[in-house]
């Protein structure tokens, strides 16, 4: 049903990063993007806007919840927070991702004999 927007990322990667970031602290959309960009040392080229459809999906699945609040720049913003279901989902996704990554790494690494 949902058309996954595949930019440079594999499906679900953006969501995973959002959840991971929100696990540390609740943030609003703009701050969230800056946080992800900064932490990835700008290695990941994500369109800032693509965050919002992802956030809507997470909201719908009730992995995050949102509350209106005031940002540090004194603007009315929606602050996103991880839910318990979101935390569980993140854990599962991360372990899945790590296994996948391990597999990929093994295939890509020079053969040891």
């Amino acid at each position: 049903m949902s058309k996954e927007k595949q930019r440079d990322l594999f499906p679900g990667a953006l969501e995973m990063m959002i959840l991971r970031t929100l696990k540390r602290q609740p943030l609003h959309g703009y701050a969230l993007v800056q946080h992800i960009k900064r932490n990835s040392d700008d290695l990941l080229q994500i369109e800032e806007g693509s965050l919002y459809p992802a956030l809507q999906r997470l909201l719908k699945e009730e992995l995050v919840k949102a509350e209106w609040g005031v940002s540090s720049t004194n603007r009315r913003v929606r602050i996103y927070k991880l839910t318990a279901a979101g935390a569980k989902h993140l854990e599962r996704e991360v372990s899945r991702f790590e296994r996948m990554l391990e597999g990929i790494t093994r295939v890509l690494s020079p053969e040891e004999s």
Binding site: S2, K5, E47, E48, G49, S50, Y52, Q56, K60
Partner: peptide, 16 residues
């Protein structure tokens, strides 16, 4: 930086 604003908004709506 944001990308296609209309499309993003529409995609966000589509979720619902």
């Amino acid at each position: 930086e944001f990308g296609n604003l209309t499309l993003m908004e529409e995609d966000g709506r589509d979720v619902w």
